[in-house]
Amino acid sequence: MDVLRCRGLRKEFGGQVVLDSLDLTVAEHQVVALIGASGSGKSTLLRCVNLLEELHDGTIELDGEEISAPGVDPDQVRRRIGMVFQSYNLFPHLNVLDNITLAPRRVHGRSRREAEDRARELLARVGLAAKADTFPDRLSGGQQQRVAIVRALANSPRLLLLDEVTSALDPELVGEVLTMIRDLKAEGMTMVLATHEMSFARDVADQVCFLDAGRVVESGPPEQVFGGPTQPRTRQFLARIIEAGRL
């Protein structure tokens, strides 16, 4: 069954086409990695799926329901999709526990007790149980990003969008976040992740999509996209990545 189906997505910013008749399908329990140069449309695609950006054409379906249709309440859609940002975006005035329980309590109507129990359980699973009462500015980047992922998971989303979640991290902190994502895959979470970590994409993704100028130029299993790319643009991009020592 397909969790996400995007058809012919188009998005412009001031006349510049950022997404250009883009198609993407994500099946349940599948992990899709979006790769491509900066400005190729990876982040915009994720923001469009979460209805944070207005579409200029095309349709998006979540579990077979068209969420891009006029009259659909975006708040109802977003509570079923989790999103994690490059710069963590934790709420600085709330401690870790309150960051995580805000949406379960206010959006999903859970009691404080229920929401906190679940938050502590999730935190314990990622080794952050001791940080429940800490404020975000006292955490390392890797810890902040893991809290941000827990915050998204606390809503039990159908789909998790990860927007370059390791790009702002020091190299030695990248591993802890990637391990967490690997564990999520093992639990069957459906995910779309934009990433610059090619070896991670090859390792964790079921499907890799190479984006260029707002289009999916090539997609397939990682061995195929990384091992024998058929498109010249993909080959060019991967050659530059190898040159930079990132693959």
């Binding site: 944070l52 109802q76 977003r78 940002f85 934790l90 709420f91 600085p92 005035h93 959006v107 998204a152």
Partner: peptide, 28 residues
């Protein structure tokens, strides 16, 4: 704006976002 995006992505309405995320930070 990234704080608003984070709050909205969690499913909070505009009112909830103002009340629980924007105003507490703004007033401080």
């Amino acid at each position: 704006p990234s704080q608003l995006a984070a709050a909205r992505s969690l499913g909070l309405t505009y009112r909830q976002t103002m009340r629980h995320v924007v105003l507490p930070q703004a007033v401080r």
